[in-house]
Simulated assay, not measured.
Amino acid sequence: MSGLFSGKGFSGKIKITQNEFVQLRDIIYELSGIYLQDNRKFLIENRFAPRLSELNLKSYSAYINYLKNHNKGKTEELSMLTELITTNETSFFRDNSQLKVFRNHTLKKIIDESNKTGRREIKIWSAGCSSGEEPYTLAIILHEALKDEIRKWRISITANDISTNVLKMAQKGIYTRHALRTTPIHIVKKYFKDRGNEVFQLNPEVKRLVRFGKINLNLDRDVARIPKSNVIFCRNVIIYFDKNMKKKVLSNFHNNLLDNGHLYVGHSESLHFVKDKFKPRQHAGTITYHKI
């Protein structure tokens, strides 16, 4: 899942003033919907100093002017800005208590209802997919649940992130052992090819279920292109949005979900402020949200 700041990086000498911080924060918010609290000033300095050095800029005011006035390549620079403000810490089968509920309750219900109607179709959206561990985990769970019958199903897992770099990594389907640290050993042996040197290649049959694409959750036109979903996973993403942005994103999720759709968010994220759109459901170790 894409997250905000790891606190690691280059320790630069260029300091950011409060006025510069507010201006840069506004640009970041307009771009991505991510809101930076005042206590993030040091982390801005930590992350952005190398970029200022690359551009030979002596102050954050100069960088802000560069962002506002640099027409040639501006899209590329704004894309790089998103890389600087996000970090990605994830793994396969992370937060297994949620995945267990997905497998034993949500997915089972979808499969049972689909078998009754004869319309064997499952659509899942991984919003904030990072380097692909989450959507590929869901694809593996579907393979385990449906086994050979999976060939009779129309399955679509749409995986999106704002970071171009992590999407490139995801599309390759190549991971280190560290990314598999929370994955059962029998799953690793069944769905990954050991290429040596602690590197593993994901099974093509799993990869084919997932379609990756860049998205900005702050742009309605981006969200509108996502196919209607039975389930949305957006874990550890909305925690970085302010209340207005959260309401906007969750409203779009509500519109995207099919009737009786399910939403999974991170353990530390609550939807108490959108009670008119989602109903919480308690499970052992986790909470899921059901579209009203």
Rank of each mutant, 00 (worst) to 15 (best):
A127N: 03
A127Y: 03
A127E: 03
G128V: 12
G128D: 11
S131P: 04
G132D: 08
G132E: 05
E133H: 04
E133A: 08
E134A: 12
E134R: 13
E134Y: 10
P135C: 08
P135H: 05
P135K: 05
Y136R: 04
Y136E: 08
T137C: 12
L138S: 06
L138F: 07
L138G: 02
L138C: 06
L138D: 02
A139M: 13
A139N: 11
I140P: 03
I141R: 03
I141P: 04
I141A: 02
L142A: 02
L142C: 07
L142S: 01
L142T: 01
H143K: 14
H143D: 02
H143N: 14
E144A: 08
E144I: 07
A145C: 09
A145Q: 09
L146E: 05
K147D: 10
D148V: 15
D148P: 15
D148C: 06
D148Y: 10
D148S: 15
E149Y: 10
E149T: 13
I150P: 09
I150L: 14
I150K: 12
R151D: 15
R151I: 13
K152R: 15
K152L: 15
K152M: 14
K152W: 05
K152S: 15
W153T: 08
W153A: 03
W153K: 01
W153G: 03
R154V: 08
I155D: 07
I155Q: 10
I155R: 09
I155C: 10
S156W: 03
S156C: 12
S156N: 15
S156Y: 09
I157Q: 02
I157H: 00
T158S: 09
T158V: 14
T158K: 00
T158E: 02
A159G: 05
N160R: 09
N160Y: 12
D161R: 04
D161I: 06
D161F: 02
D161H: 03
D161A: 08
D161C: 09
I162A: 05
I162E: 01
I162Y: 00
S163N: 14
S163V: 06
T164F: 11
T164Y: 09
N165H: 14
N165M: 12
N165C: 11
N165I: 15
V166M: 03
L167M: 06
L167K: 00
L167V: 04
L167A: 03
K168M: 14
K168T: 13
K168Q: 14
M169H: 11
M169E: 14
M169P: 00
M169L: 11
M169D: 13
A170F: 03
Q171G: 11
Q171P: 01
Q171S: 11
Q171N: 14
K172M: 12
K172Y: 10
K172S: 14
G173V: 07
G173M: 08
G173D: 05
I174H: 03
I174A: 02
I174V: 14
I174T: 06
I174S: 07
I174R: 07
Y175A: 05
Y175F: 13
Y175C: 05
Y175L: 06
Y175P: 02
T176Y: 06
T176K: 13
H178W: 13
A179R: 11
A179M: 12
A179I: 03
L180G: 06
R181G: 02
T182A: 15
T182S: 15
T183K: 03
P184F: 07
P184G: 13
I185D: 12
I185F: 12
I185R: 14
H186F: 11
H186P: 00
H186R: 07
H186T: 05
H186G: 00
